[in-house]
Each structure stands twice: as C-alpha cells, then as structure tokens.
C-alpha cells in the first residue's frame, strides 16, 4: 500500500514541487486536448499517417523561423511551419504528376528530405541562439515552468508558454464546435459535401493549418515525433467506448488530464522523460479500451459471439 502511496504523493510533496508540477500538468493537458481534438478529425479522415508525415515535414520551417526571430514564440513558427507544409505539398504534387513516381513514394521522399533538412538546420544555429535537437524531437515539458512570465502592464499573469498554448487550445476547441458539421460531412462523404455546396478544399486546408498550429504549439513540450501519439491515442481509445463523434470529441478532455497526470507520476517514479511517459500512459490506457470496450472490444462477449460486424 505504501508503495502506491509513494507514487501518488511523490510529485506533490513540497509547495514548490506542487506549483512546478501543476504548471506541467496544465501545459500537458492543454497540449493533449488540442492534439486530441485535431487528431480525432485527422483519424476519421483516415489521414493518421499523413499527420505523422506533416509533423516531420514542417520541421525546417520551425527551425528557420526560430533562427530568424531567435524566439520560441508560436506566431512566426506557425508561419514557418505552414510555409514548409506548403513546400511539401508543392513538392509532392510536382513529383507525382510530372515524374513517374507514385504519390506514396513522392510523399515518403518529400517528408523525409524536409525532416533531414530541418535537422541539418538545427545544427547550423550560431551565437547565442540555441535550440536543442533532442528537445525539438522529443520535447521537454519538464522545463516549461522555466519559461518567462507573461506581463501585461503591471500584472504578472503567469507562464508565457502556458498562455500561448492555452490560446491555441481555445482555437481548436472553438473550431471543432463551429466547423463541426463541415468537418463531419467532408470527412464522411465527399460527394454529399459537394452536393451541399460545402467548400471541400477550404475545409481540408483549414484542417491542415490547424494541424500545423497545434504541432507548433506542442513541439516545445512533446516534440515533433511524440506529438502524433497525443493526436491518435485519445480518439482511437474512445472509438472502443463510443460510436458517435460528439462523445469521442468530448472524451478528449478526460483523456488529456489522465495522460498528463499519469505521465507526471510515471516520470517522477521512474525518472523517465515526462513527454514520453505521457505517451506511454496513453498507450497503456488504450489496451483495456481495445480489449473490453463496449464498441468492438476484442474480449467482449457480445463481440465474440457475433464475431465480425454484419455486413
């Protein structure tokens, strides 16, 4: 019993520890929530691997923006990321239409080349500008409390990174609400979307812009590689619990908090990196959903009897 108590109490013993870990927890939840919401739409559009590819492909844009501005502020980085994403898109389009290469090969080639370019650029940085490659790739949410305080006139509002991530999170929440039907119909049935006169391409590009924004806002905490775990895990876990989109989207909120708190405890107990612990907690929580979930869980009696879905 005392063993569990230790794990539970570990990160929250002294007041300074509490304030430190609370900031990490809030940051983690905000990152997971924005990733989870955008990720749900990415997953139902069957673009999960494209999301992975994009998170790699926009790296040079992020690094260039950082080299030019010397700051981690999300605005310029987002623009850089979008430009790099656009570059990827143009390159893939050109390679797949003007050369004998097929689209999948063109995508593989483009995204890995861009990723490599990003890593090379990372090592080019000179002078007092420094961005740690390991931090870019895997994130370092443990250092978030060291960020500058946001000051507005004479008021200190708290950690700057948390505020900017919070703003991005709010943007994704509002977008998912307002654009819900456009995203739903364009994901489910393109022909219906067209016959309803929906701007199919605009919605597609809008989602890509949002995806880039979320990746930029998250890469400082979880890095461009682990960000995919935060995007995919909530919706694929919930797919075993609910069979409608609204509860799957709403379930991203408890998942985010669980991943975040679970990650902090696991990291404190084992001395793992926190971002990887969060992703690992998400993967561990996925297992019972997959086995016992009421909607298609593998070991559920009702599912074992009927076997495959009737079709």
């Amino acid at each position: 019993m005392s063993f569990f108590w230790e794990i539970l109490q570990g990160p929250w013993e002294t007041p300074s520890q509490v304030s430190w870990n609370l900031q990490i927890m809030i940051m983690g939840s905000l990152v997971c929530l924005s990733c989870g919401l955008v990720g749900t739409f990415v997953v139902i559009r069957r673009m999960a691997l494209l999301g992975d590819a994009i998170s790699h492909g926009i790296l040079p844009g992020i690094v260039l923006a950082y080299l030019f501005t010397g700051s981690l502020s999300p605005g310029p980085m987002w623009i850089g990321a979008c430009l790099a994403g656009l570059g990827c898109g143009v390159s893939i389009e050109w390679l797949s239409t003007r050369t004998p290469l097929r689209e999948d090969a063109a995508m593989g080639l483009t995204f890995t080349s861009f990723f490599a370019l990003g890593i090379v650029l990372l090592s080019l940085q000179a002078g007092n500008v420094h961005l740690d490659p390991a931090c870019v790739l895997y994130g370092d949410i443990g250092l978030i409390p060291l960020e500058k305080e946001l000051k507005l006139w004479n008021y200190t509002l708290g950690n700057q990174s948390i505020w900017s991530t919070g703003l991005v999170c709010l943007t994704t929440v509002i977008s998912s609400f307002v654009l819900y039907r456009l995203l739903l119909v364009t994901s489910f049935d393109l022909s219906l979307a067209k016959s309803l006169g929906m701007p199919v391409l605009c919605v597609q590009y809008g989602l890509m812009l949002l995806l880039a924004l979320v990746i930029v806002a998250s890469f400082e905490s979880v890095g461009v590689i682990l960000v995919l775990a935060m995007m995919i895990l909530p919706s694929v876990s919930s797919a075993f619990l609910f069979d409608r989109l609204p509860p799957i989207l709403i379930s991203c909120v408890p998942w985010s908090i669980l991943y975040s708190i679970g990650g902090i405890h696991l990291a404190h107990w084992t001395d793992f990196p926190i971002s990887a612990s969060m992703a690992l907690v998400g993967s561990i929580l996925f297992i019972p959903c997959c086995l016992f979930g009421p909607k298609g869980g593998v070991l559920r009696k009702s599912n074992m009897q009927t076997g495959q879905r009737i079709s």
Binding site: I44, V185, S187, F188, L192, A239, F242, D243, R244, L245
Partner: peptide, 12 residues
C-alpha cells in the same frame, strides 16, 4: 465511421 443511421439522415 462513428455515426448512427439517424446522424447520416440528418446530414441530408
């Protein structure tokens, strides 16, 4: 896709 029969008809 996570939609019910009703959801699909409502899309119409």
């Amino acid at each position: 896709f996570p939609v019910t029969a009703m959801d699909v008809v409502l899309m119409g």
